[in-house]
């Protein structure tokens, strides 16, 4: 279980829709409440099933948040690199998560809209530094150009796997069967999709030092 936060308009839904649906739409309307997605990620020796809450960023949904993060094992904190306010907001959320979620949690800071480099308001080093202080990975993504998003989910899955094997977390279920037919909730289309989406070129927009965990395996995404 994983949750995505935080600020309205930073592109959380675009990010998830890009990852799950492999598409980008300029016309995504603000999320109402929260949307729920599931996806399976194949790692070297295991298959991780992520259940993702894509939460609304608007202030009026603020108090709904505990409902989504209470049982979460990971959180993607998404901000918009062109908005300093959205970056500041993340820090508040981290505090809230740290004080309200008793179990260990995989945190990951994501700077979205990296395609708008010219409008950047949050320096890369600031964000990376902050991420390091809370023990989180920092990745910059572009939902528009599909850059870095696979890494975010892959990193999260890898870290979750580590976390579950360390047995620190009781709520994180791991199953022995590596074939992973543990789906109880029928999923949409994810994992059925061919692993070979041709024609996609990863530009080196993300830097090597942002990969905090695990190995990058381009061919394995759901």
């Amino acid at each position: 279980m994983s949750s995505i936060f935080i600020f309205p308009g930073v592109g959380k839904t675009s990010l998830v829709v890009r990852y799950i649906g492999k598409m980008f739409s300029k016309h995504i309307s603000p999320t109402i409440g929260a949307s729920f997605f599931t996806c399976n990620i194949n790692l070297d020796n295991a298959r991780v099933k992520l259940q993702v809450w894509d939460t609304a960023g608007q202030e009026r949904f603020r108090s709904m948040a505990p409902m989504y993060y209470r049982n979460a094992n990971a959180a993607l904190l998404v901000f918009d690199i062109t908005s300093a306010t959205s970056f500041t907001a993340i820090k508040g959320w981290v505090k809230e998560l740290q004080s309200n979620v008793p179990e260990a949690m995989v945190l990951s800071v994501v700077g979205n809209k990296s395609d708008l480099e010219s409008l950047r308001a949050v320096p890369y080093s600031d964000a990376a530094q902050y991420a390091a202080t809370i023990g989180a990975a920092y990745t910059e993504t572009s939902a528009l150009h599909d850059q870095g998003i696979d890494q975010v989910f892959l990193n999260t899955a890898t870290s979750l796997l580590k976390l579950s094997s360390s047995n620190l977390v009781s709520s994180l279920r791991s199953y022995d069967s590596a074939d992973g037919d543990t789906d109880r909730i029928p999923t949409g289309k994810p994992s059925e999709e061919d692993a070979t989406h041709t024609g996609k070129v990863e530009l080196p927009a993300w830097r090597i030092d942002n990969i905090a965990h695990g190995e990058m395996q381009r061919s394995m995404c759901c």
């Binding site: 839904t13 998830v16 829709v17 799950i20 649906g21 016309h27 995504i28 309307s29 603000p30 999320t31 109402i32 409440g33 929260a34 949307s35 729920f36 997605f37 894509d54 609304a56 949904f61 709904m64 949409g188």
Partner: peptide
């Protein structure tokens, strides 16, 4: 009106007050 105005319902299950 809510359903008509919210494209985001089309992409996933939503849970909302």
């Amino acid at each position: 009106n809510l359903v008509r105005s919210s494209e985001s319902f089309k992409t996933a299950e939503s849970w909302t007050p």
